[in-house]
Design a binder for these strands. Structure first.
Length: 569
RNA sequence: GGGCCCGUAGCACAACGGUCAGUGCAGACCGCUCAUAACGGUUUGGUUGCAGGUUCGAAUCCUGCCGGGCCUACCA
């Protein structure tokens, strides 16, 4: 038994996320966490909402609420959705927590003491009407290069030229539309990532088994152009962690907060503290402090590719630069993007399926299975309603659901709702047990390696093996000539359902529970597959479950395809 | 502009120097009838984006081109 710390990239607070956000981090992280727990390992699976920054302030403003209240509400909404999808976080924290505030200020003080923070005086665009400094992307104007009228302050969407807000012609605030903008002098703290460039580079080079996606993005940032740049870690905002050195004031930094990307990863640690505060655990240090037992913890992070730079560079600088024995990540699993029907999911254009809508129209397991079995591991992948319907109907309804149905109903009609007795395994049964033993081992290898799609394909193969067995054994035929043999075959079929429930739990936890419930058994992992196939003894009572997976009809598919086509917020 | 990734049967994806390029879905045919008209078997589809090159041998390595995507440090 090992100890596994697992974190999923923390979703931003400003609204409900679409399916792309789910498949890139939370869902695979949950898959891995559930699998490891099923294998008997000790797991601490943490997530949280990322609540600071300008977008949160603006979203709250639009909603007409104080930002703290807005975040509290949205946290509750996101927590409910996460529960709806069966995301088995041990704790779902908040980056705005007091714990994170204190930790963030603590790390800043340590980094400063280590000489890893420097002050930089710079000029930024200030909007008098909005009463705030504006991030470059919140300034629009006419592109000096191509004349495009809605160029953003950081880059022109039309000609892709990189811009500086001062270059824009007729700049205006995208928040208020105001043109009353001026450049103001402001002072900020920069994290001296460049000072640790070589150390980070060596560390990345040692990760031969990490996904190429992870290391290639890290290397790009490390070696591109002039190499790893220092990064501003403070902002002129009200909402965030106040800039302090631990609990002491930071002269010259009054009224400023830390940049979200400085405090957000620290929330991974704070979430463990919040987990203890919530009474769900009693020792966070044995997960996070290598001097307090975290040495034997394996720490795995999950994220979409857009998050990789912050997890491979920024956060490690924070951890290593502190000079304290914090646990450093052991493995970073990153994912590409899920596209929607030929284009991108778009929050602003209402294009694609959002998490709350997904749960309204279908049970979580449908989404979990489809998204995980097609996780964008090697490249961006594609969601289409036809593909989704085909995949779900075939895999879940036909291959797995119907298997459960045909076995339990046949048994009920011939032997009653009790595991029948009589008969002995023959060559076919032993061959099946050997085949399944091999397949389960392969499945476990893929899960251990977090090869999500390969694991899903192997699991599906395991389901198919049950149907193949039934076809070959044909208990409906043997029942007429030798009921004892039929009893043995049906008994094996019922035990296969139990086996499938246990193996499938990480992917489809709700259906797995329903299957185990109907069999009146547990979800114990089959360390010995052959033995597990005899776990339900003759005389054991069960019930025929409801249809596990209703099929998606053509009408539903057409309806949803139209409903989620876009242009609706 | 720079960088990274991708382009493989109708569709979604595997193979990452070496047996006829595989799997699932869809299609065709056969079988079964216990089951959510479900299941099983067989089978039709690919000069692996294009053009060169390296090699005994390339989807796999190199060069160029075409097409798509992502990142580019003040959105997170």
């Amino acid at each position: 038994m090992a100890r596994h710390l697992i974190t999923s990239a923390i979703p931003y607070i400003n609204g409900i996320k679409h399916l792309g956000n789910l498949v890139g981090s939370q869902l695979p992280a949950d898959l891995y966490a559930r699998y490891l727990r099923d294998r008997g390992h000790e797991v601490l699976f943490l997530c949280a909402t990322d609540e600071h920054g300008t977008p949160a302030e603006i979203a709250a403003q639009k909603a007409g609420k104080p930002v703290a209240e807005y975040c509290e509400e949205m946290h509750a909404v996101q927590a409910e959705i996460a529960e709806g999808f069966g995301l088995s976080f041990d704790h779902f924290g908040r980056s705005s927590s007091d714990r994170n505030k204190a930790l963030t200020q603590h790390f800043a003080a340590r980094l400063d003491a280590a000489g890893l923070i420097r002050e930089v005086s710079e000029r930024q665009m200030y909007s008098n009407a909005d009463g705030r400094f504006l991030p470059d992307r919140y300034i629009e104007g006419t592109c000096p290069n191509c004349g495009f009228e809605s160029a953003r302050g950081d880059q022109c969407d039309n000609c892709t030229k990189q811009l500086d807000p001062v270059d824009l012609i007729d700049p205006r605030s995208t928040i208020s539309g105001s043109t009353d903008l001026e450049m103001r002098e402001t002072k900020h703290l920069y994290l001296r990532q460049s000072a640790m460039k070589d150390e980070l580079s060596d560390w990345i080079d040692r990760q031969a088994d990490w996904p190429v996606l992870t290391t290639s993005i890290a290397r790009k940032w490390l070696h591109d152009g002039d190499g790893l740049q220092d990064r501003g870690i403070t902002r002129d905002l009200d909402w965030g962690v106040p800039v302090q050195k631990g609990d002491q004031p930071w002269p010259g930094m009054e009224g400023k907060v830390f940049y979200v990307w400085f405090d957000a990863p620290i929330e991974y640690i704070a979430s463990a503290q919040e987990w203890v505060d919530a009474g769900k655990g009693d020792d966070w240090e044995r997960w996070w402090r290598t001097d307090r037992g975290a040495d034997d913890v394996r720490y795995t992070q999950f994220m979409g590719k857009d998050n990789v730079p912050f997890h491979t560079l920024g956060f490690p600088v924070t951890i290593l630069g502190s000079g304290e024995p914090w646990k450093l990540v052991d493995y970073i699993k990153s994912f590409n993007y899920l596209n929607y029907d030929g284009g991108q999911f778009s929050t602003s254009r209402g294009r694609g399926v959002f998490q709350d809508q997904a749960l309204e129209i279908l049970p979580a397991d449908y989404w979990r299975w489809w998204l995980l079995s097609r996780a964008p591991e090697s490249g961006d992948s594609e969601f289409t309603w036809e593909g989704f319907q085909d995949g779900v109907n075939k895999d879940l309804a036909d291959v797995l659901g119907n298997f459960v149905s045909r076995v339990t109903k046949f048994c009920r009609s011939k032997f009653g709702e009790t595991v029948p007795e009589g008969g002995e395994w023959g060559a076919r049964e032993h061959a099946l047990a050997e085949d399944l033993t091999r397949r389960v081992a392969a499945y476990a290898r893929h899960m251990d390696a977090i090869e999500v799609r390969k694991a899903a394909a192997e699991l599906r193969g395991i389901w198919v093996a049950g149907n193949e067995y039934l076809q070959a054994a044909a208990p409906w035929a043997t029942f007429k000539t030798d009921p004892e043999i039929a009893a043995m075959q049906v008994r094996l079929g019922l035990n296969l359902i139990r086996l499938y429930a246990a193996l499938s739990e990480p992917f489809i936890p709700f259906a797995a529970r329903a299957m185990a419930g109907a069999m009146r058994t547990d979800l114990g992992w089959p360390d010995d597959v052959t033995g597990a196939l005899g776990a339900l003894p003759p005389g054991h009572a069960f019930t025929v479950p409801e249809v596990l997976f209703a099929k998606i009809t053509d009408e539903q598919r057409a309806d949803w395809a139209a409903r989620f086509a876009g242009t609706r917020a």
